[in-house]
Design a binder for these strands. Structure first.
Lengths: 349, 349
DNA sequence: GTTTAGCACTCTAAGATTGCGAGTGCTAAT
DNA sequence: ATTAGCACTCGCAATCTTAGAGTGCTAAAC
């Protein structure tokens, strides 16, 4: 069997996918012949369909129904058949207007996610840049709590605050803690978080003996603070909106599938993992159906793109919707959104 | 028409509701006569049913089906017919075990919500205590940002951190800010948040003229900080879990209703408003169907209870499920949970 | 060799029909 | 007041029917 499809077959596949995306109904040979623009009869189309079916690009839900694209069919369509019409300048301007000037990263993410959900009428999601990278420690502060515990407050970059409770070996007074914080601030402020961890470990190793009591305390405490995972609860560094829109789609009307999907969204962990995969790639990436290797997304596709600052991909944004989505519209939207977010971040840096 | 029901009618209503909660199917007169334990015939039951129908406590979905309770019927049932069996000591001990020692209020809320959802197999929710009340300012800190903005960090109570960005009239140096913070800390630390706001306003009014420059700065800044709503985004002070379980219930299988419900959960605002109503009441409260005055909850009931410290209700927790829920089980669970949370909070105070 | 028309065949979705079971309401007897 | 009896109603599920859409194949046409 020839893996290559002829021009006609390609064209027919393209028209078929487009029609199916529009109607959601299986496409018959007669309709396809008409819509294709080609001057061929339905019988000819039928022959072509038989070939495409053999190649696994289309299938029919039952004997006397038309054809629908398989995941493989979608893949070919998206990879080489799709003609995306770029957004007009006008639309881009509108989009830029929508993206207000948000204060914090989290707010920006929420707003973008919301925006994506609204414009595509599907679920939108935005992963928040991992603070570990390219973010520098601004200030550190300690407060005594009861039971020898200490509250550590980190100010990172411009405006992100993170706090952690650590357990100390004994009670420390506010004054002692202030001293430690002062020392740490003078030593560590301004450095990248990544770097800070290194320095702490280095100090710990080197000067164990000759170090002043106070410094030692400070470093030991800092070690505990920076030992915690980057963000207090991992499940928080990703926002999603418009999930409920997915209920509207017929292909997801099976309550069990839907439930699985929503549970996955609640878990977040797994979706995050999935998004991590996208971090490597460049530009818009598309997962079709089970390509994610993740059962509950079987009937869904994900269109994502990384957003970046200074050439480094900081996070991922995108949409999730039914496999049968209007790719030619969604792809440029995700693409442009990612670029706008990148620009916004670069500016506010 | 007599508003009073006879003993028999009451008993029958009780058995009917119980049966319906168990089966979800309309209850016919024969079955009801059998289950009631009363030694009466189906015909007698039919007569009683006719009376109950007239009073609007039961209805039949169609001519030849059995009866199901109306919202009014549920109300009577819950108010005066329900026999709740209190949880055994054993169960309470188990519950206490489940409620681990969580660090922050938010974690505790999440864990309790989760727990409620799990044990009732419905959706659980917990409102987080409004920090405005009975929480005292521990410490305040300022950091300069770009563009004359200042990051204010508040430490409240033991371990809650809150941060706000405020806009200043000019650029302040780190040293100036430190001074202001020192002043504010000496003046305000240890006082209740509620009180703090008062003091600030008072200072502003009184000493406008004779005040030292630095103090004035400090107070003006503090005013901005405490002018913000108690929590940065209102939508955050309430957690919910197990929403997806609601998909399992037949009465909610209508995709549109479900969607409305989920959207309401996402909005949070409206649910919060609803929960606010519960703050007044004492003990376990129950909303049946549309009693909430909130369309999307038509087929649902809410069982809530406030949890308190020192006799003051701090927040609300509870579950949402189909009207047809096992009240006799859910009510004690919510009740005990609220008490356990109260106890846990009192202890960690 | 490719394309096309024709045709028998298959399958589904949407009514229509039927029988059954459950349950009611009424009446008359207890 | 309670009960038995009975005719009646309704919904549900099963079965059947039909119309329509679409296919696959074959044989003729280009």
């Amino acid at each position: 069997m020839a893996e290559e499809l002829g021009d006609r077959a390609q064209h027919l596949l393209k028209v078929l996918v487009e029609s199916y995306i529009r109607s959601g109904q299986p496409i018959g040979s007669r309709a396809l012949a008409r819509d294709s623009g080609l001057d061929v009869s339905a019988a000819t189309v039928r022959n072509a369909m038989a070939d495409l079916e053999e190649l696994g690009m289309v299938c029919s839900p039952h004997t006397s129904a038309g054809r629908i694209p398989t995941n493989k069919g979608y893949r070919i369509f998206v990879d080489s058949l799709l003609t995306i019409k770029p957004l007009s300048e006008r639309e881009i301007v509108t989009m830029r207007g929508q993206l207000g000037r948000e204060e914090s990263d989290r707010e920006l993410a929420a707003s973008v996610s919301n925006y994506l959900a609204g414009i595509t009428e599907m679920a939108g999601m935005v992963m928040i840049p991992r603070t570990a990278k390219r973010s520098s420690l601004r200030h550190i502060e300690f407060m005594p709590l009861s039971d020898n515990r200490v509250l550590a407050i980190l100010v990172i970059n411009e405006k992100d605050v993170q706090n952690t409770v650590i357990k100390a070996d004994r009670h420390y007074s506010a004054a002692e803690l202030q001293q430690s914080a002062n020392y740490l601030n003078s030593e560590l402020a301004g450095h990248e978080l990544f770097d800070v961890r290194h320095r702490i470990l280095k100090e710990l190793r080197e000067t164990k003996a000759g170090m002043e009591q106070m410094m030692h305390q400070a470093i030991t405490m800092a070690e505990q603070v920076f030992d915690q995972p980057a963000s207090p609860s991992d499940s928080d560094d990703f926002v999603m909106s418009g999930q409920t829109r997915l209920m509207e789609f017929e292909e997801l009307s099976d309550i069990d599938k839907l439930r699985g999907l929503f549970e996955a969204f609640n878990e977040k962990q797994q979706i995050l993992q999935l998004l991590d995969q996208c971090l490597d790639g460049d530009g818009v990436q598309i997962f079709i159906g089970d390509e994610s290797g993740y059962g509950v997304l079987d009937e869904c596709s994900m269109v994502t793109s990384g957003y970046q600052v200074d050439g480094e991909v900081l996070g991922i944004l995108g949409v999730i919707g039914p496999t049968r989505m209007a790719y030619e519209r969604v792809i440029p939207i995700v693409d442009v959104t990612a670029k706008l977010v990148s620009a916004a971040l670069a500016q506010s840096k």
